[in-house]
Amino acid sequence: MEYHPLPQPDEIPVREREDAMGAYFMMFATAALGLPLPIINMIAAIIYYFVNKSKGRFVQFHTLQSLYSQIPVTLLNIGLVVWVITNLVKEYDFTEVFWGYLVMTAVANLIYLIFSVVGAVKARKGLFYYFLFFGKLSYAQVYRVRVGDGEQQRENKPPKM
């Protein structure tokens, strides 16, 4: 499998670096809303991805990595909200399994937060930063040479008569 060459930091314009950084910081903006409704973070991240994906592979890589890494964290958070509400409504006990889940979710959020900040800082410097799993996944998706890449000819043609 072939991959497109990676751009070096000095080849990446500031504009693109900032958009890439924005992908990670976006979640801070939606964090307040995302606390009771984690899905909102997710929707915002998806929108950000589609708005920015055409801004070059560097931006696309970072936004996709931010989006991908957010999916499991969001799922965990939704699970937690649902679990707590169910327990309260149905008067179930908060079991050890629940506490385990709570701690795991907290750890996931913390790690996600730390990695996002590092990712944002690196992106601003025009560097790549690969999260475990999500980094490779995003790299593979964004930089893999697909059939048809590079063959797109941009050519203006007169209207068909």
Binding site: E96, V97, W99, G100, V103, M104, A108, L132
Partner: peptide, 18 residues
């Protein structure tokens, strides 16, 4: 990588539950 992640988090969940 995915397996590593799953193992780490599964471990955290399991250890606290048990």
């Amino acid at each position: 990588d995915l397996v590593i992640l799953l193992v780490i988090f599964g471990f955290i969940w399991g250890i606290i539950s048990l």
